[in-house]
Amino acid sequence: MQAYAHRGDECVVVARDQLVAVATHCRDEPSMHFDMVVDITAIDHLETFDEFRFEVVYHLYSLPHKHRLRIKVRLDEDDVHVPSVSGVWKGALWTERETYDMFGILFDGHPDLRRLLLYPEFEGHPLRKDYGFADIQPLVPLTDIGVPMSLGTPFAGTNRERGIAVGEGTSAAGKALIPQTTAFKPDVVYK
């Protein structure tokens, strides 16, 4: 455990296996009472790192004491697992999903670790430093979401597959409701 402050921001670096214990203590200890996780994100030190490449950053805030704390967990390049703190603060649910989405850091114990901002077929994790600024994603083949609802049985069978439209095209906007036919092909292919 290592602690420092920069420009008035207090920061604690904790070991990965102690993270949940430290987080729970920070929340429950009355003198700290960090009842809110303001933000969770990560830093990629690709250009400068020697021991660790990623840092997962937790910003905590205490409403009654009005103080803040930054917790950091350092991660190796080839072992990007962190225990999830979503059991401690619910605010971690989406922020951890986003960090996974952007950095590919896996939060063990997260109930629903899916991509958040990007679409499921996205390849790579864009905020890693080795993801180039001009990298282009491959086209995602159009997915058939099954037979359109027929009138005889309007709601028979499992609706889930029929109701939820899945990915189409390269853009996130392609996740919109897609035409219920495989004959549809985009006219313009962006390279």
């Binding site: 920069h6 921001d9 920061c11 830093i43 910003h59 803040r68 930054r70």
Partner: peptide, 22 residues
């Protein structure tokens, strides 16, 4: 070099910027 988390009150709540400089 350094890192800061700065927070202001946006219209919907706390608007935070976390900036890392090398």
């Amino acid at each position: 070099p350094g890192e800061v988390y700065s927070y202001t009150e946006g219209a919907n709540g706390e608007l935070g910027f976390f900036i890392v400089s090398d």
